[in-house]
Amino acid sequence: MKYPRYTSYEARLGLERLIVFSDIANQIGADWEYVAADENRLDEFLRVYEQEELTVDEKFTLMIIIVSSYEEWLRMKKTDKEKDEWPRIVAHLEHEYKIHRNTVKYWSVLEESDLEDVYRVTPQMREIEARFRAVPRRKSR
């Protein structure tokens, strides 16, 4: 099976059948999945991910929206407490890592060593990435 590297228009249409996005998001073409993020709707997005029958492309795209929403929350938060939804996000990223590998790598910003120049979620994403890098891969025959 081939796993997605980029979002697709078909995935966007599929998600728009399940979620009403903001007018601004609906007017955007490129980077729609980042504009559709909303830290106040994180639980709603997770419920759709957990309860609806989604295609691999829809899961990939929705997880980008979910992580982007969590990033927004981290930027806006007034506390050091981790948001309640983070363990659910991690569970999905790890359980379906093959689908979300590119999302984890994107938010991990592995090429940047200065944490002042990365996303707020980067340290947490690097922990996920490190766990999967440590797992030996089967060699192809």
Rank of each mutant, 00 (worst) to 15 (best):
I99E: 12
E53H: 06
L74H: 05
V109M: 15
V48I: 11
Y119R: 09
E44Q: 14
W86M: 05
M76R: 11
F60G: 05
R120L: 14
K78V: 03
H92S: 13
L74Q: 13
P87N: 07
P87L: 06
H95Y: 08
V90E: 14
K105Y: 07
K77I: 01
I89R: 10
E111K: 06
K98T: 14
V118E: 07
Q51P: 01
K81A: 06
V56P: 03
Y70D: 07
S108L: 02
D80W: 01
W73I: 01
L42C: 02
H92Y: 07
T79L: 01
S68M: 10
K83A: 11
F45E: 03
E52R: 07
E82P: 02
F60L: 04
L46H: 03
E44L: 14
L74S: 12
L42P: 03
H95E: 15
I99K: 07
E82I: 08
Q51A: 11
D114S: 13
H92R: 14
D38L: 00
S69T: 06
E39H: 15
I64P: 10
W107A: 06
A37K: 09
D57F: 11
E71Y: 13
R41P: 01
E50L: 04
W107S: 11
I66W: 13
E39S: 12
M63I: 10
V118D: 04
V118H: 06
L54S: 06
L62D: 04
T61N: 05
L42N: 04
I65S: 00
R41W: 03
R120P: 01
L110V: 04
R101L: 15
E58L: 08
S108K: 01
L115N: 13
N102A: 12
N102C: 06
I66K: 09
S68V: 11
E58F: 04
V109Y: 04
E111Q: 06
S69N: 07
Y97N: 03
R88T: 08
D114F: 11
E111A: 07
A37T: 02
E52L: 00
E39V: 01
E94V: 06
K78G: 03
M76E: 13
F60Y: 12
S113N: 05
L93V: 05
V104I: 09
E112M: 10
S108T: 09
Y119C: 10
A37G: 09
Y97E: 12
K83V: 05
A37C: 04
D80L: 04
V56C: 08
E44K: 15
T103A: 15
Y49A: 08
D38A: 01
W73M: 04
E52F: 03
F45K: 07
L93C: 09
K105G: 05
Y49C: 02
R88M: 09
L74D: 11
S108Y: 03
S68T: 03
H95V: 01
I66S: 10
E44S: 05
T103M: 14
L46Q: 04
E39C: 13
Y106T: 12
I66F: 14
L74K: 06
D57Q: 13
R75D: 15
S69F: 09
N40D: 10
